[in-house]
Each structure stands twice: as C-alpha cells, then as structure tokens.
C-alpha cells in the first residue's frame, strides 16, 4: 500500500496547464494511478475528455510517453505497444527494464464503442492495465447517455422530458463483465478514495497479465454540481452503495470499503443536477426503483465477497 510520502517522491505524470474543467476528476485518477507505479509507464488513451484536454497541440500535459490513436481502440493500441516491447526485449533491441503499460478510456470508449477492443486485449492476455475513468456519459461531446449512465440521469440523448424521466435503463455492470473474463485482477474504485485507488493500481502493476480497474469519476459539468465537491460525491457513491469499492483477485472477491452506514441513494442523487427532475412529485417510483436495484446489486456483491450469506 503506497503512502502519500511514497507517492510524493514519484514524478507527477501530468503537468498543470491542461484544459480539463476546474474540478475535473479525470486528471485526479490519472495522477493517482500512474504515481502508484514504481516503474516507468507508457500510456494510451481513447479519444475523449482526457485526451482532448491534455494534448491540445503543441501543448501536452503528459510527462510520460503517451499515444492517442482513436476512440474505440485504446486497449488494442496499448496491446500493440506491449507486443512491440516484448518483441524488442526478446531480440535485445531495448533495455530489459520493466515498463507498465496503461490504457485509459472514458465510459464511452470503454463500455460502448471500445468494448470489443477491450475484451479482445484482455482475452489475449497482454501485460497491461486498462483504467476506465467512468463519468457515466459521453462528456466530451456534450453529455450524451452511455451504457454506464445510471437510470434516471438526464443526458442530452436521454433527457428528462414530459414523458421520459431521463435514462430508462440501469447501467451496464462492466466490472462484472470484466470479472467474467477471468482476469488476474479486476477492481472498482472511485475518485475521493486516493488510498483505495493507489493501492489497487499498485496491486495491478505488481500483477502479471491483463488488469482492469473501473474508476467512478464525478464530472462537475455533466453531473452538475459544485466543482469543489468532486471527491465528496465520489465518496457518497460508495457510501450509498451505488458504486461499491471492491476487487477481484484471481476470482476472489474482496470488499475494499464498507460504508459505516449505508446511506439512501437520495443522498447521492440530490447533490447533482442530472437527477434534479427526480425530486419532482410523481417521480418517487423511479427513485424507489433505483434504490431497489442498488440494494440488489449490493446484496449480490456482499454474497460474492463473503460478507453476507447466500440467499437460500
């Protein structure tokens, strides 16, 4: 488990001067994940907020080697660099030092358009870490719904209207889909939990093979909240069990954060503009449905983590 003192001795992977919104959670994730690596890193990113704000030519915020290719292929691109590294190392053309390969993608580039590329790269067993900075919508193009968008959230392609209360469907449970790939390491973390995230990233870097971490990233613009609350909202997602923090190491589940007191989902929803319409009379059933689904998923997870008995 890296301490903040350890982390402070590492080179910051990002400079200031990037163009992310004030209070953006994505650079927080990047800094925490990459500073958890004791070894040098090489990074790819999907097209999206992160890539756009960090690489407006000729200004790049990346202090490490970085390649952006396209939207749906961060994983495949990263797998290509990793393959080149293996080949060149085997042929003695580069130094044999360990390098950690990291692919970043937003939820659009990971859950949706880049899903096949991710699944393929993970199945092939490349020694790489894929990190999804999951802000639960296509923020870069102006807050459109993705399969990671939660039920009830208003987005520009599933807006709250007179007959439709925002997104109708629940979010896709991508972390579980990645667990089903039988990877050596899969985890879920959130902005607001630096120790949890850096510990998981370090663990991933110490694990050989394909790794996946899904990090919930509050987005002040798309979620519509005060930018100073980015970490707080991330913590509320965990405290309401909307976004539980856990890891699956070689198939073994472990809850890495158990809220002292499980808060109702409304505690999370009420701080965000994307859910504002749900507080209007007539939408109680939606909140109820959200609570019910959160409870169901949480209960399933507790069972998998050995924290609750299996329902008979």
């Amino acid at each position: 488990m890296p301490t903040l003192k350890d982390l402070a001795t590492r080179k910051d992977p990002l400079t200031g001067g990037h163009r992310a919104c004030a209070g953006c959670g994505a650079p927080i994730i990047v800094r925490q994940v990459l500073m958890a690596s004791k070894e040098p890193v090489v990074v790819t990113s999907a097209t999206g907020c992160l890539e756009v704000v960090t690489t407006i030519f000729p200004y790049t915020a990346w202090n490490v080697n970085f390649l952006h290719n396209a939207f749906e292929n961060s994983a495949a691109t990263c797998s290509g660099i990793e393959a080149a590294y293996k080949s060149l190392k085997r042929k003695g053309k580069i130094k044999a030092e360990k390098i950690n390969f990291v692919a970043f993608g937003g939820d659009g580039g990971t859950y949706d358009i880049g899903f096949q590329s991710l699944s393929g790269a993970m199945e092939r067993g490349h020694d790489m870490l894929y990190v999804c900075y999951n802000n639960e919508a296509y923020m870069n193009t102006g807050i459109q719904r993705s399969s990671a968008t939660p039920k009830g959230a208003s987005t520009t392609t599933a807006p709250a209207g007179k007959v439709q209360p925002g997104k109708v469907q629940f979010s896709k449970n991508l972390t579980e889909i990645m667990v089903a790939h039988d990877l050596p390491y899969v985890a879920q973390s959130a902005v607001g939990f630096w120790r949890d995230l850096t510990t998981k990233a370090e663990k991933a870097f110490n694990t050989q093979g394909p790794k996946f971490i899904n990090v919930l990233q509050p987005c002040r613009l798309g979620w519509a909240y005060d930018p100073s609350k980015t970490c707080e909202i991330g913590r509320l997602a965990a405290d309401t069990c909307i976004w539980p923090l856990y890891e699956v190491e070689n198939g073994k589940y472990k809850l890495t954060y158990k809220p002292k007191e499980k808060k109702p989902v409304t505690e999370f929803l009420k701080l965000q503009g994307r859910f504002r319409h749900l507080t209007k009379p007539g939408n109680e059933a939606i909140i109820e449905a959200i609570q019910k689904e959160v409870d169901r998923r949480w209960q399933n997870l507790l069972v998998r983590c050995g924290e609750a008995p299996k329902a008979s």
Binding site: T44, L67, N69, A70, E72, N73, A76, T77, C78, S79, G80, I81, E82, A83, A84, Y85, S87, L88, K93, Q116, S117, S119, G120, A121, E123, R124
Partner: peptide
Amino acid sequence: VAVESEHSAMSACVGAASAGC
C-alpha cells in the same frame, strides 16, 4: 497479435509502430 478484428489489427499496428519497430 491475433486480434479480434481488423480495426484492432490496425490499431495494434499503430501502437507497435509507435514503439519504433
């Protein structure tokens, strides 16, 4: 790299070529 699509084939090629090989 026995990829899962031609899109990933060219994507991995671009990644590999970026590494200088």
